[in-house]
Design a protein around this nucleic acid. Structure first.
Length: 525
RNA sequence: GGGCCUGUAGCUUAGUCAGGUAGAGCGCCGGGCUUUUAACCCGGUGGCCGUGGGUUCGAAUCCCAUCAGGCCCGCCA
């Protein structure tokens, strides 16, 4: 059984209503890990719905988390905001300077990420954590945590094995400068936590407002109860023994909540394997990746892998293989009957079908529509030899792949394909490079029969109408005339044009070339 | 120092929880296809299941050890 369905089944034992959560800090550095986080949760959510349960998918944005450091894309004067919640500091402008009109830092980075999520069919309920603080929803848990300060501190020491400082307090107030750093708690009188900050200023934070926050391990445990979360997949950093998941579970109970089902996933890495990457170790952001990779393929990469396995997602040559695999599965889904399969084969089949189901952008839609009738490889070829999209659609209509106007799925695929083809990740081996002269290798591979055919073709082409169809007819006619095998004729052409023994549809390729260039190439043989 | 995950064919991997003769896809090789979407169809090659012990009638699977890669123990998905 697929991991998402299996998790849904486990969750069903708790009841018929599920809240699946994801959580991400919008510090600006979105990476593919966030994609795995949110897709893992979303697939479990879908599996719950598919199993007939009620389910919500909530995305908790850690907008109350402080800015930790000055990232590369930030100007040095962000120094003043280190330690301040991301919801309360200004977004950077194009120059990296704080932009007073740019909205909050958290919102600024969240927007594009949510947009990218929409493209892969993920539309969670977004919860801004700072708003939950401001609304007072954390107040009871905070009061309870402060009351059990000693016990909580013991749990953390016991479970995580790390030492909790003597003056540790389960609430971090904001100081007079709006920063969480260097603020020392001096006392608690419900609902106020008294403090003195690093400037020596004294003050009090009302726990019913956004004047402070719970430390991470407590915050996480508290929000589980507040939102009634039944499952929150966590990266293995949180999931490691003694990590925040393990401390969160007892703390959640101490705060009167029911802890969620523990689920831990392995890391994913996105590797660009283009020409620059081997030496420079180029990595790609998730937003970049979604600009290159068809959304259902992105989902498929997550859906087909077991949660406990590393994923090295490669935007180089492996993308062809992944797309091939996906398309084969769509075109020919496994469908053996129970009698003729072993139990293992049946499990494998169920898992594959579920992965396919969960890869669809729209829940429940027909997988075959995601491909839009054209293979990824074919599109890669067309993107290279046709400079305008209209020519691509025309070619697809001629070849019978397209009827009428291209679908959104198809235009989306094409847009991403062009990004890929034009960028550094596209594999050299797949790149179509029309030769400027006959290579030595091509020369030695051409037989006399080949040369005879090429010579005849050259004559025929000189007064051939320069369209795909006319060129194709011309090749056929010449092939018949010379008496060369169809395959050999094309092999000869590929050696001449590409310097390889095979290639994409020759007439399409030739119609994109200048007639003179082609004839001059042939004449060199 | 403590702990977690992973190691199965050239590549990606299923099978490990409930032990019973190692499965798949890709690649590769061969054949087919008298008009190549880098296509398609058929057949074949290929694994002492990281290593060493143990338990068992029987181990990829359970136990112990060991090697390798990744990661966690302040924050991080």
């Amino acid at each position: 059984m697929h991991w998402a369905d299996h998790t849904a089944q486990t969750l069903q034992q708790r009841g018929d209503s599920q809240v699946i959560a994801s959580g991400i800090t919008p510090s600006g550095e979105f990476h593919v890990g966030h994609l795995r986080e949110i897709l893992t949760a979303e697939m479990i959510h879908r599996a719950c719905l598919d199993a007939g349960m009620d389910s919500r998918h909530i995305f908790i944005v850690d907008s109350m988390d402080p800015l930790r450091r000055i990232y590369d894309f930030l100007a040095p004067n962000y120094e003043q905001y280190i330690g301040c919640p991301l919801a309360y500091i200004p977004a950077p402008g194009p120059d990296g300077e704080p932009d007073p009109d740019g909205g909050s830092y958290a919102e600024h980075f969240l927007g594009p990420f949510l947009e990218a999520l929409r493209e892969i069919g993920v539309e969670p309920e977004v919860v801004m954590n700072h708003e939950t603080y401001e609304s007072g929803a954390f107040a009871d848990k905070t009061h309870s945590a402060i009351g059990q300060r000693g016990e909580i501190s013991e749990v953390i020491e016991e479970v995580s094995g790390r030492e909790v400082p003597e003056d540790w307090f389960p609430y971090n107030p904001l100081g007079s400068d709006g920063s969480l750093d260097g603020v020392r708690v001096t006392g608690y009188e419900h609902p106020h936590v008294h403090w003195v900050d690093r400037h020596g200023v004294e003050g009090a934070s009302d726990i019913r407002t956004g004047q402070g926050k719970l430390p991470w391990r407590i915050d996480w445990a508290a929000r589980w109860g507040i939102h009634g979360i039944t499952c929150e997949p966590a990266g293995k950093d949180h999931g490691a023994a003694g990590g925040s998941y393990d401390t969160g579970i007892p703390i959640c109970e101490m705060l009167g909540g029911q802890p969620p089902h523990k689920m831990v996933y392995e890391w994913i890495q996105l590797k660009g394997m283009g020409p620059m990457s081997s030496s420079a170790g180029v990595t790609v952001g998730p937003l970049d990746a979604l600009g290159l990779v068809p959304p259902e393929i992105m989902r498929y990469v997550i859906a087909r892998s077991k949660v406990g396995r590393h994923i090295d997602f490669d935007t180089g040559p492996a993308l062809f293989q992944t797309a091939d695999e996906y398309e084969r599965l769509v075109a020919n889904p496994p469908s053996g009957s129970d009698e003729e399969m072993t139990r293992r084969q049946q499990v494998a089949q169920d898992t594959q079908l579920a992965a396919l189901r969960l890869s669809q952008i729209k829940r429940g839609s027909d997988p075959s529509s995601s491909i839009a009738g054209v293979s990824f490889r074919h599109l890669a070829m067309l993107a290279q030899i046709k400079s305008s999209d209209d020519d691509v659609w025309a070619s697809l209509r001629r070849s019978g792949h397209l009827d009428g106007d291209p679908s959104d799925a198809l235009t989306g695929r094409m847009r991403r394909m062009r990004n890929w083809v034009d960028g550094p990740h596209f594999p050299d081996a797949a790149r179509i490079e029309v030769q400027s002269g006959i290579s030595d290798e091509a020369g030695t591979n051409l037989t006399d029969e080949h040369r005879e055919f090429l010579s005849a073709l050259s004559g025929a082409l000189s007064d051939c109408e320069w369209t795909d169809a006319a060129i194709r007819d011309c090749i056929r006619a010449t092939t018949a005339e010379v008496g060369i095998g169809g395959r050999d004729a094309y092999v000869a052409l590929y050696w001449v044009i590409l310097g390889k023994h095979h290639g994409p549809k020759a007439s399409s390729l030739m119609s994109e070339m200048e007639r003179e260039d082609l004839l001059s190439l042939i004449s060199e043989t």
